[in-house]
Simulated assay, not measured.
Amino acid sequence: MSVTKERRAAASAPRRIWQMLRRALDVELRIYASIGRFVARRPAVPRGAFGFSYHRPVFTVLMIFIVLSAVEIPIIDLVVHRWPVVRIAMLVLGLWGVTWMFGLLCAYLMRPITVGPDGIRVRQGLELDVHLTWDDIASVARRKQVDEPKSPRIVEADGARTLALRMQDETDLVIALERPTVVRLPGHAPKGGDQEITAVRLWVDDPKGFLDEVRRYL
């Protein structure tokens, strides 16, 4: 039995590596796609829907990281300028880091949470995009909650499974679902992949405006 398990693990290892590489490539492509949307001023909002931002709690932190990453480039270049190979490698790495951080910020700006005729699209950063139709949704309510740092994304309590999409450990809205609903999260089990949930907690910068828009459909 143990030999069979070892063989299965060995066989699945290349597949896991391939999935990780493919995910990394997808994230990289989304970085540049987000920058493109930012330059073109075309946020990813479906026709007839309204977008709501959720970046306010992390905006300052991201800007600090971007500025610090940009400042590091000439400083490191000054230190390693005597070694051309190292200098070029550090320059490429530094520019890539700044581009990545800027692309992440653009993803927050250009991939808003949306409310529209087809339901609610709950988004966060580069990868997460959960579509909930109005038939899936029982209610939407304003409820601010602060969790402990590094709390799990899926919270299980009293038979319920809640997807908690926090910004700086906070959420300010809760979406209760009509029935247990399977959604796909970035990554693989147990934290990602297909997950059955009964509610979603999320952060929106304008919860009042979000609820006003929801009332048009629910």
Rank of each mutant, 00 (worst) to 15 (best):
T171F: 06
V86G: 08
L105F: 10
A160F: 07
Q124I: 03
A138C: 02
W100Q: 10
I154W: 01
S12M: 15
D212Y: 00
M167Y: 08
M1R: 12
H131A: 15
I137R: 01
I120Y: 06
R8G: 01
D206E: 13
Q124N: 14
R111N: 15
K5F: 07
D129L: 01
L91H: 13
Q168F: 04
L95K: 01
G159N: 06
H81M: 12
G193T: 05
R22W: 05
W83N: 15
P14W: 02
L211E: 11
D194Q: 12
Y108A: 01
H188T: 12
K191E: 09
H131Q: 15
A9V: 04
L165M: 14
L185G: 08
V155R: 10
P84Q: 10
P190F: 02
T133D: 09
A40Y: 00
H55E: 12
L21S: 02
A189P: 10
Y32G: 03
R166S: 09
R143L: 12
I35Y: 01
I66C: 07
A164L: 10
W96N: 08
A141Q: 15
Q168C: 05
I154P: 01
D212L: 11
I31Q: 07
W83F: 14
V39H: 00
D135W: 00
A13T: 04
R143S: 11
D118R: 13
T133R: 12
E72F: 04
R142N: 09
Y54I: 03
R216F: 02
R87P: 05
W203P: 00
V98D: 02
K208T: 14
V39L: 13
G209A: 11
Q124R: 14
P14R: 02
V204M: 02
M1D: 11
D172H: 07
L93Y: 12
S139N: 14
V58H: 01
R87F: 15
S139W: 05
T171Y: 04
R82A: 15
W96P: 00
T171M: 13
D77S: 15
R41P: 03
V86C: 10
I66K: 04
G36Q: 05
A199S: 14
I17G: 00
D129K: 05
I31L: 14
G209T: 09
E178V: 08
L211V: 15
K150I: 03
I120M: 06
L68D: 01
V183D: 06
R15G: 02
I75M: 14
W18A: 15
I17V: 14
E213C: 10
V80M: 03
D147K: 08
E196M: 12
A107D: 03
D118N: 13
I35Q: 10
D212Q: 13
V79S: 06
D136I: 03
E148Q: 12
A13W: 10
V67H: 07
P152K: 13
L132V: 06
W100C: 07
A13V: 00
Q145F: 11
W203M: 09
K144M: 09
I175D: 03
V130G: 06
V39A: 09
T114E: 03
L29T: 08
I197F: 06
R8W: 10
W203R: 09
V39W: 07
P190C: 07
F50G: 00
R184G: 00
E127R: 12
L29P: 02
C106T: 07
A107L: 04
